[in-house]
């Protein structure tokens, strides 16, 4: 028997740097804060949006896995996060736009501690960052919540998926679960400051497997297309 001592991946980072780091790992304090937030969000979604979930049986038994969905509202992340419980809930990270959620210290604090988000810097994500996200997905057995359209739809219609999802998952034995959200655009479109009550439906599809795809451009595009088709098919 050997001890395997693994210091936190974010050890030695200054507080601000740590908030924005892909290496950020949550401790008991973060977990307690997030549990409070998740409890509040769950109650809000039930009361204000009468969230209806179908296909819950399609969720893998445990991490790692990735949830992908269409994106037209900030409610999307909250709704997808609310269906994860136990280990999957504790290990879930939303991949969120760095220029929106991690721009100031206050938003970064909120994104990191409440949503447990990791920043994605659109159009300037470095190869090392993708490698770290892939490594952590498998080694730390994480769950990523991801919207491959890259931004919120302004009219509610689904845009083509970017190949970014493929770079995370091509060649890895990690299931990708397609999800379809309806009602989020009406409840909280991108041009409104605050949400309004309204029914939200979430349909969870069967997991997709991209372990056999090459981790190269062709594999990334194929994975993104397959995810897009699976999400469209749920509509």
């Amino acid at each position: 028997m050997d001890f395997r001592l693994r210091p936190a991946r974010d050890l030695g980072l200054a507080p601000g740097e740590r908030l924005r780091s892909h290496a950020r790992e949550a401790g008991l304090g973060s977990l307690a804060l997030r549990s409070l937030w998740r409890g509040g969000v769950g109650a809000y979604l039930r009361l204000a949006h009468r969230l209806e979930v179908t296909g819950q049986q399609n969720l893998p038994a445990g991490p790692p896995f990735i949830l992908v969905a269409n994106h037209c509202s900030h409610l999307d992340t909250l709704a997808l996060g609310s269906i994860l419980h136990g280990e999957a809930g504790r290990r879930a990270h939303a991949l969120a736009a760095g220029d929106v959620f991690f721009r100031t210290g206050a938003t970064a604090l909120f994104a990191a501690y409440a949503v447990n988000a990791l920043p994605v810097w659109r159009k300037r994500t470095k190869a090392g960052e993708i490698a770290m996200l892939r490594e952590r997905l498998v080694e730390d057995r994480l769950v990523y919540i991801l919207f491959p359209e890259g931004t919120r739809s302004r009219d509610g219609a689904m845009a083509p998926f970017q190949p970014g999802i493929g770079t995370l998952v091509a060649g890895l034995p990690v299931p990708v679960v397609p999800c379809r959200l309806e009602g989020c655009h009406a409840a909280w479109p991108a041009d409104r400051r605050l949400p309004r009550p309204g029914k939200i439906r979430l349909t969870i599809g069967r997991p997709l497997d991209f372990a056999g795809l090459p981790n190269a451009r062709a594999g990334w595009v194929e994975a993104a297309s397959a995810c897009e088709a699976a999400v469209r098919a749920l509509g």
Binding site: R4, L5, R6, P7, A8, D10, L11, E25, G27, L28, G29, L31, R90
Partner: peptide, 21 residues
Amino acid sequence: LREYDRATGLFREYLIVGVVV
């Protein structure tokens, strides 16, 4: 405790850290 558990990796064991707290 926070520094020690992050340095040793104990922080991943929420139950144990909870009892120590």
